[in-house]
Design a protein around this nucleic acid. Structure first.
Lengths: 153, 153
DNA sequence: GATGAAAGCTTGTCCTA
DNA sequence: TAGGACAAGCTTTCATC
């Protein structure tokens, strides 16, 4: 993929806010006719600039209203321990984000749950049962100030 | 909105992985004909269970390849200080997530940038210039293990 | 990048269980 | 109360300019 020009960026900005916009309307907004507009979208998709289209749900309304950040320290940092941990984490649907960190802790997770009870259950029965986990520190947000899937362009 | 039944959940699961699936195909997958399927989707949208449809971009390919977590402590925690800070944060497109925290720090942010240089620039020129910011601690992920917009259903 | 045409989808109405 | 059938009107999408 060569460089993104102004029209590509405009297309991406719009698709980031409305992934279901009709091509005909998108074309109008970026100042093209439908064919070349669709051609550009397809190119952006094939180049992997657009990774996927998804519906975003209201977390509270589907029983995932609580977000928790979890810091995790492993007993060791060798490849086996880390690989095993990451493999297990990827299987857990409550873990929506997981990063291997430089510095203080080993991993930083974002976990969703219905409420604190459900989270405690998850921590006791799933998270801390993974082999190699030494300690876990939970951090709880009181208010979500901002959360977006839109990347700056 | 009454309770979500099995078919609703199936619809939501599918739309979370493919927000652009055609109604006709969605209907087939959930075992309905197109009309009642579309009717359910519309109800889910109107009830706010489905909040929006978006395109997810490849962060690296649009110059947002670096994710950074930032902990922030304010000089005070009164309403004015906090409100001013949150208002400013919402304006910054590099901040894709911001939570008011219980406990240690005041805010936890997720920030995207092109590279460390760009992030330093952001921290020096935007973040720490916001009135009321006392200190900032940056945490850098070395590897993204998992990141999804799919909520467990 | 635009035009035009064929194929297929969306979506509303009405009917049925 | 919910699903199914059908049809009109659009969109998508591709070949051609």
């Amino acid at each position: 993929m060569e460089k993104l020009d102004k029209i590509d960026l405009r297309i991406l900005r719009i698709l980031q806010t409305d992934g279901r916009i009709q091509n005909i309307e998108l074309a109008e907004k970026v100042g093209l006719s439908p064919s070349p507009c669709l051609r550009r979208v397809k190119i952006l998709e094939e180049a992997g600039v657009i990774e996927r289209y998804v519906a975003l749900l209201n977390a509270a309304k589907v029983g995932a209203g609580l977000t928790v950040f979890v810091r995790i320290w492993l007993k060791a940092q060798d490849a086996d321990t880390v690989d095993h941990f990451t493999k297990e984490i990827r299987q857990l649907p409550q873990v929506v984000e997981c990063h291997l960190m430089a510095g203080d802790c080993d991993f930083l997770l974002r976990v969703v749950a219905t409420d604190l009870d459900a989270y405690r259950d998850f921590q006791v029965h799933s998270l801390t049962r993974i082999k190699g986990v030494q300690s876990v520190k939970t951090e709880i947000p009181m208010q979500k100030i901002k959360s977006t899937s839109e990347l700056p362009l």
